[in-house]
Every structure is written in structure tokens, then in C-alpha cells.
Amino acid sequence: MISIWRRATQHLAFVILTYGGRFGVHFDSALPCFSCPYVAGCSGHCYLMALQSNWWGLQMPWVVLTSGLGLQALAVFGLFVLLTLILGKTWCGWICPFGLVQDWLTMLRQRLAIPEARMSWAGRDRLRIIKYLLLLYLTIIPMLIAHADLHSDFSLPFCQICPVKPLMPLFVGNTAHLALDTANTITLVFSILSVTIAAMMVVGMFFKPRFFCIFCPMLAIIHIFNKITPLRLTKNPPTCLACGNCSRACPVDIRRVHEDRANVQDEDCLLCLRCVESCPSDRTLKLTGFGKSLIVSARRRLTTDG
């Protein structure tokens, strides 16, 4: 049942965020999910673009940063933090349109009965750092442009290589971002990287659920606020029978949820709640909000949902 609700929410969010702008819906530029500004007519923008930009982000020169525009940038950041705090990782598991695209590819693979690609535990752990490196990359380059005269074609460095940029506009019939930009060497290299990464991601996302999420710097930022977000995934260790359903069902291979501890929310957790749904022990895994139980694991759920 949780999966049904989640799918419904994801599809609704996809339609609103991807096409809502055409009907006058606009959520500004502070969304903690991949509602891509390169999609014409989308109803809100991913905050990563604002963060890297020279209008509300790190590429602003000091003089602008200390003016009224600086306050506006702070306001956008504040809105982003507020949205992140309210919904936490549910942005990833329940709202992100690119997350749904990844889930579609997984569903297609499952329909074709093609096995999921497996990673070794050590290999999977080694990939964790990449999202933080990407976060570092997307914060340093804009500052180098603003303060160290790096060429302005390096602007929006993450967007230039983000697979969302060439892929999401396809849903509004725009294939322009699949083309190579030959304006100069920098744009050419970025566009080659962009298309190559997108192609690799499509293959990766087909064989591995939520493959892109492993590398997503947005997940890294949301995780920074995780300690103070009211939504948490918790566990009652004394009732856990250690069956391992939770970690096996997890799309991003989190093993922490299986461990004998109360705080099982991992940095890569998307709060998709598949672990809660697949847990066969009553009241063992639960999603809490402001200290109250919102969704709890139940034996009966597994007997009916599978």
C-alpha cells in the first residue's frame, strides 16, 4: 500500500513540476529536488542551479553579495532550507521527478525480468564520497569564477554535466541538450561530458535502481540538515528478527537499516519506505514526524502487498 501511495504521489509531483508552469504554477528556485530549469514550462527550479548561479548563488561577486541581491540570495537559501527541513528526504523518494524517471527504468527492467546489477558492499561504500565531491565541485567552481577570474563558460558547472539537463527536457519534446555545443573548447568538453554521463546514467539506472541518487549532490545537502529534520526513519531493535528484508528491498542498498540500532536513517536514505513496507515485524521500523509515528511496519502488510 505504501508503494501505491508513493507511486501516485510521484506521478502527481512529476506532472505538476514538469508541466505546471504552463498552467501558471510556480514554486520558485528553491526546490530540493530535480525539477530542472532546462525543462521549458516546469513549475519550479532545482536549488542547485540557484546555488551555483551569479544571481542568487556562489558566483555572485562580493559587491553584489553584500547588496540587496545578497539578501534575496539568502531568502532563496532560507526557503530551500525550510522546504528541506519540512519534508527531508521525502523530496528524494516521493517528489523528485528524476527519481521517478529512474523508477520507470527499474519498472521496465523488472517487467522484462532482467536481473538487477549487484555491487559489492565495499564497492558500494566507496561510491558514497562522490556526491560530496560533486558538492564541493559545484561550490568551488562558481567561487573561482567570481573571485579568481575563471572563465565564465565554467558557469553552472554541475548543471553542465548533470544527466538531468539532457534527459528531462525530452519530456517536453526538447532534444536540444543532446547536441554538442561547439562554441569553444570548454562548452564542447562540457557538452561531450554531459551526453556521455547521461548515456552512462541511463544504462546504470536501468540495471540498478536509483543509480543516479548514489551520486546526487542534492542528497548530500539534504543529509546535512538531516539531524534537525522532523521526519525520521527509526527502528525498535528488540523486535527486529534480522530477516534482512529491509536492506534487500532498499533501492540504494542501505545496510544500516538492518543493524541493531535505533537510528537507522542512512545518509543515502531516500525515505521511500520500502524497508518499512517489507518488514515482517510489527512496529519495528517506523517513520516518525515531530516524534509521532506516521507509518509503522506491520506483518499484515507483507502478507497482502508482498
Binding site: 523488472q110 532482467i114 536481473p115 538487477e116 530477516c243 528491498a249 506483518r299 507483507l302 502478507t303 508482498g306
Partner: peptide, 18 residues
């Protein structure tokens, strides 16, 4: 039967893993 079984990957290898 130890535990209920949640199955997402319905390929043969996914079923064997479950």
C-alpha cells in the same frame, strides 16, 4: 518459514536472492 518474503526483482536471480 522464516519470515515473510518481499520480492522486488522478479528475475530468476532476483527470486533466488529473495
Amino acid at each position: 518459514w522464516p519470515g515473510g518474503m518481499a520480492v522486488d526483482d522478479r528475475s530468476v536471480s532476483g527470486l533466488i536472492r529473495a
